[in-house]
Amino acid sequence: MPDSSDLLYAKLLGETAPIRWEELQPFFARGALLWVEAEQDLVAVATAVARDDQAQVGGWLRSGLLARVEEARAEDLLARDPSLWAVVVAPWVLVQERAPVTAS
């Protein structure tokens, strides 16, 4: 039987979706938008936030791998309109820039 962490991860994975910056702007305005750096697993970070894993989340916050979206990043996202991936862990929306698809 899978443990609750596996089930939560699977649930959040199923709730991730591509999104445009335009759709995220209201969450940014409310201060409810968290940026997840590209080297992190977005769903793993969302799982830790949902489980209130203060040690793990605090470590990411201190290292800058997880942060509130600041105005400079918001302006960059508005200008570039990159492909983003997001998941909601109320009251937060976690967002990450999707890596560009490269031809092999």
Rank of each mutant, 00 (worst) to 15 (best):
M1I: 14
M1W: 15
S4I: 09
D6F: 15
L7H: 13
L7G: 07
L8P: 06
L8V: 15
Y9S: 05
Y9K: 02
L12Q: 03
L12N: 03
L13T: 11
G14A: 05
G14R: 04
G14T: 09
G14L: 03
E15K: 05
E15C: 09
E15N: 09
E15W: 01
T16A: 08
A17I: 03
A17L: 10
A17D: 13
P18D: 15
P18S: 13
P18I: 00
P18L: 06
E22G: 10
E22R: 10
E22K: 08
E23M: 13
E23F: 11
L24A: 02
L24H: 01
Q25N: 03
Q25F: 11
P26N: 06
P26K: 02
F27T: 10
F28L: 04
A29P: 08
R30S: 12
R30W: 01
G31H: 04
G31P: 07
A32R: 08
L33W: 01
L33Q: 02
L34Q: 03
L34G: 03
A38Q: 10
A38R: 12
E39S: 12
Q40D: 08
Q40Y: 01
D41W: 07
D41Y: 04
L42V: 07
A44C: 02
A46W: 00
A46M: 07
A46R: 00
V49I: 08
V49N: 01
V49R: 00
A50V: 09
R51N: 12
R51L: 15
D52I: 06
D52H: 14
D53L: 10
D53Y: 03
D53G: 06
A55S: 10
Q56D: 07
V57I: 14
V57C: 10
V57E: 03
G58N: 03
G58K: 05
G58D: 05
W60G: 09
W60M: 12
W60Y: 07
L61H: 01
R62C: 10
S63G: 13
G64F: 07
L65K: 08
L66Y: 00
L66E: 02
A67V: 02
A67I: 07
R68Y: 07
E70Y: 02
E70P: 00
E71C: 00
E71Y: 09
E71S: 08
E71I: 04
E71H: 12
A72W: 03
A72R: 13
A72F: 06
A72M: 11
A72P: 02
R73L: 15
A74R: 08
E75T: 09
E75A: 11
L78W: 11
A79K: 12
A79H: 11
A79R: 12
R80A: 15
R80Y: 06
R80K: 14
R80C: 07
R80P: 09
D81W: 12
P82D: 06
P82H: 06
W85K: 11
A86S: 15
A86W: 02
A86R: 11
V87E: 01
V87W: 04
V88C: 10
V88A: 14
A90C: 06
W92V: 06
V93E: 04
V93D: 02
L94N: 01
L94F: 12
V95K: 01
V95G: 00
E97L: 04
A99D: 14
P100A: 14
P100S: 11
V101R: 14
T102Q: 14
T102K: 07
T102S: 10
A103E: 15
S104Y: 15
